[in-house]
Design a protein around this nucleic acid. Sequence first.
DNA 1: GTCTATACCGGGATAGAC
DNA 2: GTCTATCCCGGTATAGAC
Lengths: 194, 194
Amino acid sequence: MSAARSADAPERLIEATRELLWERGYVGTSPKAIQQAAGAGQGSMYHHFDGKQDLALAAIRRSAAELRAAAERVLGGEGTAYARIEAYLLRERDVLRGCPVGRLTMDPEVVASAELRAPVDETLDWLRGRLTGIVQEGLDAGEFGGPLEAAELAATIVATVQGGYVLARASGSPAAFDTAVRGLLALLAPRAAR
Amino acid sequence: MSAARSADAPERLIEATRELLWERGYVGTSPKAIQQAAGAGQGSMYHHFDGKQDLALAAIRRSAAELRAAAERVLGGEGTAYARIEAYLLRERDVLRGCPVGRLTMDPEVVASAELRAPVDETLDWLRGRLTGIVQEGLDAGEFGGPLEAAELAATIVATVQGGYVLARASGSPAAFDTAVRGLLALLAPRAAR
DNA sequence: GTCTATACCGGGATAGAC
DNA sequence: GTCTATCCCGGTATAGAC
């Protein structure tokens, strides 16, 4: 049982929807496009899902879960708080494609729907919370110096990543993302290094 | 001659397009919606503009120019580098609407079109350059301490703002934007304050 | 479960009358 | 300059056959 090509129809439909939502957003993605990408017919899609929104919800939930897992893999690792944050910021990313979850916040119909927005909100909120704990560890250990608020720094870290995608896509090059991240790391760098 | 209600048709069409692009993006905005919002007919729109893309280009250029002017008003002010950056970060914003320019980077058709993407890229690039100069001033004056790169910090500042919009729209509240900005300001704060 | 037919509306644009 | 008519295709969904 391989996972991708020979998967069953619902599975292929969800994966195709994930790709299209990532690339084109919700308003830019049509049921027809999904069906073609999934190699599934009209009838199949509407048999397994209630419609575009229902399918999108399944796809968004899966992307959200995947983002959390990927972040946790890095944030739950070994090392100082700084080291784990650095690992998170420098991890491999498909920068020019943007964040599959964060990009949905710019979609008018996602934001207008409480159901569709919920997993997006919860994911970014979880990430901030997770980072807050790590930053607090670092603060307690005197890694970052200063009178600083863990929750604020966590928000700044998430915002820099999300904004880094914006800069990269505007310029058509991942370099802008990296530059923004390096700036943040320099600001966070243990006092000793400055 | 008032500027808004009684303006001529091209003017009303551009303004309506600016609003819709801001709110719904390019793929989410139809000629029909523009015409209705502008109170202009089909014929009028296609007489004055070559089509949706041509009109969008005019709208994007105007929004880009407006963003630059608004930023320059704050960045070109008086005070230390830190003070001007703080003023920029804390200036009044329609946070939940997002950035009228930056949001376009998440639109597949804007990014796919060299013409539409150019003004977006140029604007964000100008902003980074403008901030780089100011950060460099601050660095020269010893305001920020440390071995830091002006261009990197400038990118981080712009990214934090753009990402702050993402966090705010995800949570449905401007608070997340403010939190991220406060975190950045704390990191930038003159050494003395820490 | 999946297919095809059908429906209705909207997207995006052109043509020619006024 | 603006209006209305017209065009063709795609979006989103339902119905019923297989």
